[in-house]
Amino acid sequence: MESLTSVQDLHALSALLNPPEEDEDFQKIKPMARIGPGHIGSPDLPARTNNNDDTACVKKKSKDIWDEEEVTEVSHFDDLIDPRPQPEYEIVLKQSVGTEDLFLGLSRKDPSSMCCDSMLVKVKLPGTKASDLVLDVRETFLDLRTPKYKLGLHLPHPVHRQEGTARFITEREELEITLPMNRPMDSINLA
């Protein structure tokens, strides 16, 4: 391939890549075709100055990603000043399986997490007694506090918080929390 050495070749290449605006072909292009990616979305509207207007619809101009009202209810558990370490934990998904599932396959269950019934959270708490534990379980959040440790855990699936059980195993210094999962679409998906 020949190299572009002459000035005329460079001008021809520049004209090819950047056509001049007064070109007839450019004038034939509709104005909508001149819109680029920066034009996506609604244009910024000025704030309303009339006091009678609803101010809830006016969005503040700030660089915040979300408003304070949009933050979830468990955000007050995230204490950045608290020096207590997070204990080691493990989340295990469980499912109840019978012989009709293993040998005959009658209930259409498979080994995937889609068919799991409950969630087991194992938390290792060395040097902790059962009387020191403070446990709060929400639908999607688990909060565990002890004098030595603090755990704020966002759960991977919603759970039935009232039906869960917890037991502290003194020999292993481990807390096991079993939470049945809240899956309202299981009757449709697994039918």
Results as ranks from 00 to 15, higher is better:
Met1Ile: 07
Glu2Met: 10
Leu4Trp: 08
Thr5Glu: 11
Thr5His: 05
Thr5Ser: 08
Val7Phe: 11
Gln8Arg: 12
Gln8Pro: 00
Asp9Ile: 00
Leu10Met: 12
His11Trp: 14
His11Val: 15
Ala12Glu: 14
Ala12Asn: 12
Ala15His: 15
Leu17Asp: 07
Glu21Phe: 12
Glu21Ala: 14
Glu24Asn: 05
Asp25Ile: 08
Asp25Trp: 11
Ile29Thr: 05
Ile29Asp: 03
Lys30Leu: 14
Met32Lys: 01
Met32Val: 04
Ala33Ser: 06
Arg34Pro: 00
Ile35Val: 07
Ile35Cys: 08
Gly36Trp: 05
Pro37Lys: 02
Gly38Arg: 01
His39Trp: 02
Leu45Gly: 02
Pro46His: 03
Ala47Asp: 06
Ala47Leu: 14
Ala47Arg: 05
Ala47Tyr: 01
Asn50Phe: 09
Asn52Asp: 09
Asp53Val: 13
Asp53Leu: 08
Asp54Cys: 12
Asp54Val: 08
Thr55Leu: 09
Ala56Val: 11
Ala56Gln: 13
Lys59Val: 13
Ser62Thr: 15
Asp64Pro: 00
Asp64Cys: 09
Asp64Asn: 11
Trp66Asp: 04
Trp66Thr: 10
Glu68Cys: 03
Glu69Gln: 10
Thr72Tyr: 04
Glu73Tyr: 06
Val74Ser: 07
Asp78Ile: 12
Asp79Cys: 06
Leu80Asp: 04
Ile81Thr: 09
Asp82Asn: 13
Pro83Ala: 06
Pro83Thr: 06
Pro85Cys: 07
Gln86Asn: 02
Gln86Trp: 00
Gln86Glu: 11
Pro87Gly: 08
Val92Pro: 00
Leu93Arg: 03
Gln95Arg: 15
Gly98Ala: 13
Gly98Pro: 03
Gly98Asp: 15
Glu100Met: 14
Asp101Arg: 10
Leu102Thr: 11
Leu102Pro: 00
Phe103Lys: 06
Phe103Thr: 08
Ser107Leu: 15
Ser107Thr: 13
Ser107Asp: 13
Arg108Gln: 12
Arg108Ile: 04
Lys109Cys: 09
Asp110Ile: 13
Ser112Phe: 14
Ser112Ile: 11
Cys116Ser: 15
Cys116Pro: 03
Met119Ala: 04
Leu120Ser: 13
Lys122Pro: 00
Val123Pro: 02
Val123Gly: 04
Leu125Arg: 01
Leu125Asn: 02
Leu125Tyr: 04
Pro126Gln: 07
Gly127Arg: 04
Lys129Glu: 14
Lys129Leu: 14
Ala130Arg: 08
Ala130Asn: 07
Ala130Ile: 03
Asp132Ala: 15
Leu133Thr: 04
Leu135His: 01
Val137Trp: 02
Arg138Val: 00
Glu139Cys: 06
Glu139Ala: 08
Thr140Gln: 09
Thr146Trp: 11
Thr146Glu: 09
Lys148Thr: 15
Tyr149Gln: 08
Lys150Asp: 10
Gly152Asn: 15
Leu153Phe: 10
Leu153Tyr: 08
His154Pro: 01
His154Ile: 13
Leu155Arg: 02
Pro156Thr: 04
Gln162Asn: 12
Glu163Asn: 07
Glu163Ile: 04
Glu163Lys: 09
Glu171Gly: 05
Glu173Asp: 09
Glu174Leu: 13
Leu175His: 04
Leu175Asn: 02
Glu176Thr: 03
Ile177His: 01
Thr178Cys: 07
Leu179Ala: 04
Leu179His: 02
Met181Tyr: 02
Arg183Asn: 07
Pro184Asn: 03
Met185Ile: 03
Asp186Lys: 11
Ser187Leu: 09
Ser187Phe: 10
Asn189Ala: 10
Leu190Val: 00
Leu190Ala: 05
Leu190Thr: 01
Leu190Phe: 10
Ala191Gly: 03
Ala191Asp: 01
